[in-house]
Amino acid sequence: MSATAEMDELYAVIEQSARTLGVPCAPEKVRPVLAAYEDAFGHAATVVAFRVATSIRHAGELDCRFTTHPDERDPYATALAAGLAGRTDHPVGAVLAQLQGRCHVDSHGIDFGVVGGFKKVYAFFTPDDLQEVAKFADLPAMPRALAEHTGFFARHGLADRVGVVGVDYGHRTLNVYFNDVPAQLFEPGTITATLRELGMARPSEQMLKLGREAFGLYVTLGWDSPRIERICYAVTTADLAALPVPVEPEIERFVRGVPADDGDRKFVYGVAVAPEGEYYKLESHYRWKPGTMDFI
């Protein structure tokens, strides 16, 4: 199938998935994103996933994310050239280029909403080339919260476990994803202590049960504060019924209505904790290949 045909098929799936959630799918927001990265959809290794979340901030939206190839392209420059994002003097506009200049990026990912349009770019590192926080924490455009928490990451065995960095241009935040996380970080006592140390809300019993099954975590940083804004723990599963916690009704409805390209289902279920509380998010893979990096 050609890249154009793949793109048209994906748009139809996006439209169907949005309808399942009762979310209006705006073609003027979706089609320009797909067109800007059209060459990604003819590539066999491209991963495509959908995500919903239970927080008020994410209400009324369906997010779609996909990986891009070839990896030498600057996906943020592509977004600017296509008019998907506006140029800015804010450091968020420079941080990806600085990261690419300091670290070898294996591939990228794009995140957009069916209502909000283009949102994020992800930089993926390979599992055998996880990055050290200190390697890029001092970049001029990097949020200072990253450098100020290098001690925290070192104490918890995360200093050299960075697998992905995600830049959210709309919210002007940055996510740092950690892979090969030490198992003790998912123990209830450690999770509780970690959240207390970061000034987050006290975890619910449901959150602690889910955390015990987690495979990875990420933190969210902003440019306006030296603190970590959120931390998210994520679990991967092929069967939501096998999770140790019940799934929210809106997420169940989403799962029933969203297809998988090859019929196999794979989900990443995450819980994000902030000072004001916790919320849940589900990522459903439409196209996925074993050995590829998960979004969270």
Rank of each mutant, 00 (worst) to 15 (best):
Q206L: 11
T292G: 13
A214F: 03
F124I: 14
E132W: 02
P244K: 07
K266H: 11
M200T: 03
R196T: 14
L10M: 13
K135I: 05
I56A: 11
A201N: 06
L195F: 08
L139H: 06
G291H: 04
M7D: 02
A49F: 01
D224I: 03
G216F: 05
T126G: 12
G216W: 00
L221T: 08
Y269E: 07
P275C: 15
T88E: 05
E15C: 15
L99A: 14
E28R: 12
G157S: 11
I110Q: 07
L195A: 04
A26K: 09
G83Y: 02
F215I: 15
D128N: 12
E9I: 11
Y37Q: 08
A77F: 00
V47F: 00
Y37K: 07
E283G: 09
H58G: 02
F186L: 05
T194R: 01
I56H: 03
L139V: 14
K289E: 13
L210A: 13
G277N: 10
V115I: 12
G42V: 11
F178H: 04
H104Q: 09
H104P: 00
E276P: 04
Y286I: 06
V219G: 03
D111Y: 07
V247F: 05
L130P: 02
R253Q: 05
Y177H: 13
C25T: 08
S2E: 09
D128E: 12
T88N: 04
V52R: 06
A81Q: 07
G113Y: 01
E197H: 08
R227M: 08
A234T: 10
Q100D: 10
G117Q: 07
R19T: 00
